[in-house]
């Protein structure tokens, strides 16, 4: 069993970090994991994405053409990855910023107003964790608790003060995905 996840957004939206948390969670959960970044030369503002693979056995390629799921935090990421998701796969879209609709009837769309939720939680920077929580719930790639645990175990010391908002964000995202209150309507509608 292998799941390849792409997490993509603007530089600064924490996509690489969200991928890392997912990879840590997978590793601590006894899975094989790879995490690979891809980003433009700009340090700030460019699009940044991470591909994370979680697999029961040894992982071959750390890159895939067609991910099993994608988390898109902005419009360019939506444009790039929505068409590439495998049939039957999952799209988690940050509808606070993603305006473009999905035209894929063959994938599960999980619209999450991640940036708005994060702002309500007091820090827009945790939008990535809202989306990650939704991803975990929607794909069942790992238990949501595993994500929370990974945050607790691996958040660097200097960022410890962000643990609580991050934790809340993951859980909030998971709940949104579970309630499916946004999923009942297509993103375009």
């Amino acid at each position: 069993m292998q799941q390849a996840i792409v997490i993509s957004g603007f530089g600064g939206q924490g996509t690489l970090f969200a991928g890392m948390v997912l990879a840590y969670a997978g590793m601590d959960h006894g899975k094989h994991v790879t995490w690979i970044p891809s980003y433009g030369p700009e340090m700030r503002g460019g699009t940044a994405n991470a591909t994370v693979i979680v697999r029961d056995e040894e992982i071959g390629s750390p890159v895939v053409r067609y991910p099993d799921a994608a988390v898109v935090l902005n419009n360019p990421s939506m444009e790039k990855y929505e068409p590439l998701i495998k049939a039957g796969g999952v799209l988690v879209a940050n509808i606070s910023l993603v305006s473009a609709p999905s035209h894929r009837p063959d994938i599960t769309c999980v619209p999450v107003p991640a940036s708005d939720v994060a702002t309500q939680l007091g820090d827009v920077r945790v939008a990535n964790m809202v989306a990650l929580g939704a991803l975990a719930k929607a794909t069942k790639i790992l238990p949501v608790e595993a994500i929370v645990q990974a945050l607790q175990d691996h958040l660097p010391e200097r960022k410890r003060y962000l643990l609580e908002p991050n934790r809340q964000a993951v859980q909030e995202g998971a709940q949104i995905a579970e309630r499916g209150e946004w999923a009942s309507q297509r993103i375009s509608e």
Partner: peptide, 9 residues
Amino acid sequence: GMIGQMMEP
């Protein structure tokens, strides 16, 4: 660049 930049256990 892949081996250098990727993370793995």
